[in-house]
Design a protein around this nucleic acid. Structure first.
Lengths: 124, 124
DNA sequence: GATAGTGGTTTCCAAAAGGAAACTATAAAG
DNA sequence: CTTTATAGTTTCCTTTTGGAAACCACTATC
């Protein structure tokens, strides 16, 4: 019998688990993926972001944006407008997260359909 | 000027943000994605899972598995062996998360390469 | 009868995450 | 001179997360 243990230690399984872990190191936390998703549709200012990302407070938004900037996923540009505005935008590197976001969109939509069907069934 | 605001409220942007949110509702927390990733390579017993998912404690593993079971992503089977063993396995529905996991593996590997290159450069 | 291995649960505690509201500073509009 | 809007920061507090260790039940081994 090829043991379960062997199967997971062979190939690149361990390497793949490490890769997932690395990704989560960057995207971890409650808000980062949602912030990146919102920015994937275009640049947004601070207050716009706060409105788009339902439920986030200014403190968290500020903190998460700082971390995303540190990891070079998001760029921050201060605009010389009358009331000063700041634009946040996905960097080229940040845009490479597009596939992950797209798959999450796809799964989330299908999941919602599934839940709806379950509710419809249980109502019968 | 087509405003930024318009661009994010039009199309399915808001619907897409909601889809990401829905996905995170299920995959949220520090451990769920790593547990699912480990199980994507085959069924594992409780203690094996704890060894594969670096750093997780029994309490957290138990709690997260219960939640994944509730969402029908993971199945739990008690085996009639001498010291009782329990096998955890991705359900068919859980396997539909494969694309998300794969994209995270892919991104994580490239990210590691990128970091390595940066270190090499800064050492010059 | 003690020890070890299985799969957990429970308890107790520390650390981290997160929220609400107040606050700073600037500038425009009324 | 008050209000509104910009972009945050700071403080205080609660909730959540998470870990360590003890514990339970069962079986096999020494």
């Amino acid at each position: 019998m090829e043991t379960i243990k062997k199967s997971i230690t062979s190939d690149g399984c361990r390497e793949k688990l490490r890769a997932v872990h690395d990704t989560l190191d960057v995207l971890g936390g409650k808000w980062k993926i949602e912030i990146i998703s919102a920015l994937s549709f275009g640049k947004l200012r601070f207050m716009e972001l706060q409105r788009e990302v339902q439920g986030i407070g200014a403190k968290m938004l500020s903190k998460e944006l700082r971390e995303l900037e540190l990891n070079e996923l998001v760029s921050r540009q201060v605009c010389n407008t009358k009331p000063i505005t700041v634009e946040y935008e996905l960097s080229e590197y940040g845009k490479t997260l597009g596939n992950i976001i797209d798959e999450m969109i796809d799964w989330g939509m299908k999941h919602r359909e599934r839940i709806k069907e379950q509710c419809a069934e249980s109502a019968k």
